[in-house]
Nucleic acid binder design. Sequence first.
DNA 1: CTGAAAGCGCTTACAG
DNA 2: CTGAAAGCGCTTACAG
Lengths: 340, 340
Amino acid sequence: MFAVSSIRELARRCGVSVATVSRVFNTPEVVSQQTRQLVLGMAAEIGYLPNESARTLATKKSNMVGLVWDTDHRRPGWRHPFLQDILVALKGALSAHGLHLLMLAPDPGAGPGDPRRFLRAVQRHNVDGVVIIDNGSRDPAVLALADAEVPCVALDLRFTGPTCTYITSDNAGGGRLAAAHLIERGHRHIATITGPAGNWPAAQRLAGFREALTEAGIPLADGDVVTGDFYLDSGHAAMTRLLERDPRPTAVFAAGDEMAVGAIKAIREAGLRVPDDVAVIGFDDIEVAALVPPGLTTVTQDKTGFGTAAAESLMAMLAGTATPPEPTTLPTTLILRGST
Amino acid sequence: MFAVSSIRELARRCGVSVATVSRVFNTPEVVSQQTRQLVLGMAAEIGYLPNESARTLATKKSNMVGLVWDTDHRRPGWRHPFLQDILVALKGALSAHGLHLLMLAPDPGAGPGDPRRFLRAVQRHNVDGVVIIDNGSRDPAVLALADAEVPCVALDLRFTGPTCTYITSDNAGGGRLAAAHLIERGHRHIATITGPAGNWPAAQRLAGFREALTEAGIPLADGDVVTGDFYLDSGHAAMTRLLERDPRPTAVFAAGDEMAVGAIKAIREAGLRVPDDVAVIGFDDIEVAALVPPGLTTVTQDKTGFGTAAAESLMAMLAGTATPPEPTTLPTTLILRGST
DNA sequence: CTGAAAGCGCTTACAG
DNA sequence: CTGAAAGCGCTTACAG
């Protein structure tokens, strides 16, 4: 589609060897000021750009990091609440280090359930490291990456190993924040809609929430803990059940904003008001939170932080430290809106 | 991080030449059934995977398509209404053809406003083609790709040229749909909140809307057309102005769902009801549309269609057709909810 | 149907 | 500070 001149062409025009040209781009401090300028000038003039494939072949480093996000072939409809924010931040932070993001599709040579389907893609493309955006399931294909000792950083997934680390929000702290806020608002009977059993962030949110309640001497009955799946409908269903309780809770903490919106819907459909009859607080601070009346009070996650922290952890591992960086915990904060 | 065996190793173990191994993977029909089986079996046994960098170097085809989406350095906060749906569909459709998606960051060697900042990344990585997700601005760095004759397919951006085509929704048809629906509901004074001047999809939506009104003999006063920027606040501001009109419109068509949600907010704040006092219809069918009470009636776009159509058009161009495929227009349909 | 050989565009010890 | 040369792992005419 266009002609790009090669290192040989550039070397010829400058009257130097290709080795020298290569050094100008890789170890400039080792070549004389004079030839460096000459080469750089000519490179700009003829529009020379080093060919990454050739570079990768020679060095075994591709300057590409793989992105694995949509890992579970059994859950195709799954949507991340703030994928776009993460991608923007991650892309920006990586490109500052000259790294590009390759979205890893399952290798076509592997079947849908093949645990090597991502690893194969990683190997073929010489990807330097991988960022994993978990979807809440434990996919063996993700674990296979760790086993192969690919540098990995996972988001919201407890992922450790000789070449693995992870980034997560302070979910327990966020749960505590939610409880403290409702308590401060005077509530003494508080229910919660939690995430699926086995979901780690959900468990942490619940743990922090429970802790703060206990510390305040407020009981949490088993019947006031209902499980959802993070989607709207489950929040609606859970709230419907909670409204049947007698006495009825005066406030509810949902472990995700979508479920919180579903809860608000159920409360309204029951002819009750938010926050007067039942207050609602969510988790995530997704876009809808600000849009749905009366405005959802929620615990916000540092969305951009996920991207930048992931890039930093990965950079550290690529720099070849002996041990992987410690997991990063991003702070959570309270956002007050109309629902509490 | 792991050892992957090379084609030489595989050839040695099979007692054939590397050329033969290469043919097994690239032109299997040309090698004898017998040696084919032998090679394939051994390949599986030792876990051989062809190295893509070496392949790219030899063939000048990388099996990677670039994704350019966040093109404008002056609008960092811009968010696409349904990026994730597009990405999932695009990734899936491309991987079926063995193609991977490389998210193109601006080349570090180029300045923020450099029109070659994406082209450079494309050249370095030997990207086979590019998908452009427009953000509504005309970025010279995007045009530079067309000038370089890189196979390009743009989304929602009129992008033509010897190696370019585009995918778009039937925006005019959608505008007509919206008008027809409101007319059918009995409205005779209908206003609209349109997108920024110069925005092509917005202009089309307005054109279709206007056409349908004209055909029905319903006038559209200049004062009933207010401009927004697709974000919530602009919809709110626009609606506030429309409510000051005398007589007040009984319905409004917003060229984007976020603006529609802003409009609903403004209507409520004015003490009026949706849809009884003012009906609202939006465009896009984003996630919030279903969540915000009373449910937003809207014109939906075929989000998955963008991804699959883009992949198909790109595949056609990569197959080396003489002329680029015709632009694709995706149908739009009406989704009825509570706001009309 | 198969092999030997050149070549893709780079990097990197090794000499000087 | 610089160059000649080998090598990274593949593909592809060219012979046979």
